[in-house]
Design a protein around this nucleic acid. Sequence first.
DNA 1: TATGAATGAGCGTTCATTCAT
DNA 2: CATGAATGAACGCTCATTCAT
Lengths: 212, 212, 212, 212
Amino acid sequence: MSTASDLPPGAVHTRAGPVIPRGGGRDAITGAAREIFAERGYHGTSIRDIAKRAGLSLSAMYYWHPSKQHLLAALIEESTYDYFHRCDEALREVGDDPADRLRALVRATVEYRVQRRIESNIGAQEWRNLEPDNRERLAGLRRSATQLWADIIDDGAARGTFRCAHPEDARRSIVAACNAIAQWYEPAGEIGLPDLVERYTEIALRIADHRG
Amino acid sequence: MSTASDLPPGAVHTRAGPVIPRGGGRDAITGAAREIFAERGYHGTSIRDIAKRAGLSLSAMYYWHPSKQHLLAALIEESTYDYFHRCDEALREVGDDPADRLRALVRATVEYRVQRRIESNIGAQEWRNLEPDNRERLAGLRRSATQLWADIIDDGAARGTFRCAHPEDARRSIVAACNAIAQWYEPAGEIGLPDLVERYTEIALRIADHRG
Amino acid sequence: MSTASDLPPGAVHTRAGPVIPRGGGRDAITGAAREIFAERGYHGTSIRDIAKRAGLSLSAMYYWHPSKQHLLAALIEESTYDYFHRCDEALREVGDDPADRLRALVRATVEYRVQRRIESNIGAQEWRNLEPDNRERLAGLRRSATQLWADIIDDGAARGTFRCAHPEDARRSIVAACNAIAQWYEPAGEIGLPDLVERYTEIALRIADHRG
Amino acid sequence: MSTASDLPPGAVHTRAGPVIPRGGGRDAITGAAREIFAERGYHGTSIRDIAKRAGLSLSAMYYWHPSKQHLLAALIEESTYDYFHRCDEALREVGDDPADRLRALVRATVEYRVQRRIESNIGAQEWRNLEPDNRERLAGLRRSATQLWADIIDDGAARGTFRCAHPEDARRSIVAACNAIAQWYEPAGEIGLPDLVERYTEIALRIADHRG
DNA sequence: TATGAATGAGCGTTCATTCAT
DNA sequence: CATGAATGAACGCTCATTCAT
């Protein structure tokens, strides 16, 4: 991750997952920011709010992070990499049948929206509040993720596995349906994650007009 | 509309549509707010930005609107009523066949997302920035809109018109797909509105697992 | 003056003198800044200090001036123009005899250091705190003022009116002596301005090694 | 020196000269402070800047110096003692002829302004940023230095060696001319120190109106 | 109708400093 | 000797809002 060099010693980071915290300061701040950005939005959040929830002083925040914007960027960057990595893994485990690949991508996405619900919402809502540099750095990754879906659906349509007439609208609809989960899903609710994956896999296949 | 009493003389408002402007001031402000709220979000927008784009002084804004929050609330309120009204009309024109009713609701929704793209996005993104009073005043309407979809899909499922196993997820997916249009649709693009309606009608029917 | 277009209507400015105030706000702030910058230096002065001495709120300051830096730049710019203008006028009134011209420049300078003592000190001490843009805008004028002295002394040395062996050091010494007045002169003291002019004229002519 | 008791063991200090460094820490800090105070001024310098340039941590600074103010005071104090000591020595080597004594003082001063250019500028510009205690502790020394000049010139004027009518203005002008050297002299430039001393000695004698 | 002038609160950020280790 | 982590106060500046005109 490109901000890795900014991390103070003691913090560990891998492309496959979130920062693994060592010690309270940095983590408390990142965690608090995550929560409050999600609740009130980037511009609706003051760094005093973040510091307060983290149980630290305002200035401690600046010991760990150079700016509020950096806090947002780090959050979005890490979770974007995480999502992309999950997709990658999921697709590597399946063959080249479009339906199988679509199932894999839906599963990875639904799991991500549920397991990283908050970051999902931050990524969706606060993307525009990234400063140009930060946004551009991630834009390629975003496009790649879109392309993963497009490749599968286009391929399925070409092969006749999917009969939908408008693959792009199918893609958008499937993605929209999966993404929306992060907005309504309640972790404490009754629907389990495997169930959810199955339901949305079926919906996705119907949208793509898959014929077994 | 509950803010009707706040309107200065000369402005007309009905439940069925937007404020009908008389004179430049009020309109210029509402228009500017609409644009900038959509571009930068509520908290990312200053009333100076709005006044500047409207070509008016800061104080003029306060002549027409008691506060920045009121500006947002008026915008969301008006467009929410508009959407609800369009749904109402569309449903009144069709019979009680669930597929027909779903088609009507999709059409009304797609048309709304395209024709009132900006307000759609504001309504979706800035809803949480409404102060409790304003939010609660509109929450019922939102729930009613949700119920319109639910009634149709549940009815279709009960009758066997729709064979989807999980009507609620079908509903969420259809709505998510339709709503997403406001995020990607480009008015200057090549897809015409009638085409779009047809495409999303088909998608919706597939999601609901409609069997002709 | 190049910042003239920044001025709000109601403030008048000419190249020949300071801003002519209309109304309390702008003037109170400029005056307070002038005093406190001189007392404590640019970085030693907070805008809260300025506002307090001006009897206004912090934000009122920003109604009249876009920034603390602008305040400094405007002060230095105006007084630099004033000094240059005075030199210009003084030299226009005399012939081309180097001694006469030196007398004129000394008089203009001494009068300026006394009459605009505070700005003199700000210009000398806070010059380095101008941001590059502002500094460069004025650098040419500064060089021109230096050149006025150099032209006179070099000319006098060439003609034999001045016999000093090192005109540049003579120039620097004369200027240093005159400039220093702003640091020690007490307006309430016993030395009158005409006396002072005479004394420093004589010193300058001795430094240049003038032979009647 | 009154701060002697603050010094950690290993550092040596005498009234006659600068701190003799033992070990890198203290020295690196003092050196860095000297540079940055001169470049940006006391209030324009943060202790983080100093620590960074010294290549040490913030806390190391506080091991060696109790505060930023102390750093400034130590710098000014040491260089003020140094200057005074140099004047003292120079005057001890000459007789009681006012011209000789003036020559000696000019030489000591010019040499000091050149050899300790940076401290000269700090002493001149940042004097006002000394806290009252520190300032008062040094004020006497400053007055003594002024008195050295005054005694010589007054004596010369009384004896007729100097014919200037206003000894105080002569003194101020000579001092101003010598002091200014620190502002424009470039160590890498072409004028050698002995030359410079000679030039300014002549200027000083002319200002005092010395007649061989 | 509309404005210019002003305000208090809060913003993101940096400051000099402290302290346990 | 020296550091990493933290703090409270203050910084320059912008905010939504007010009010006399």
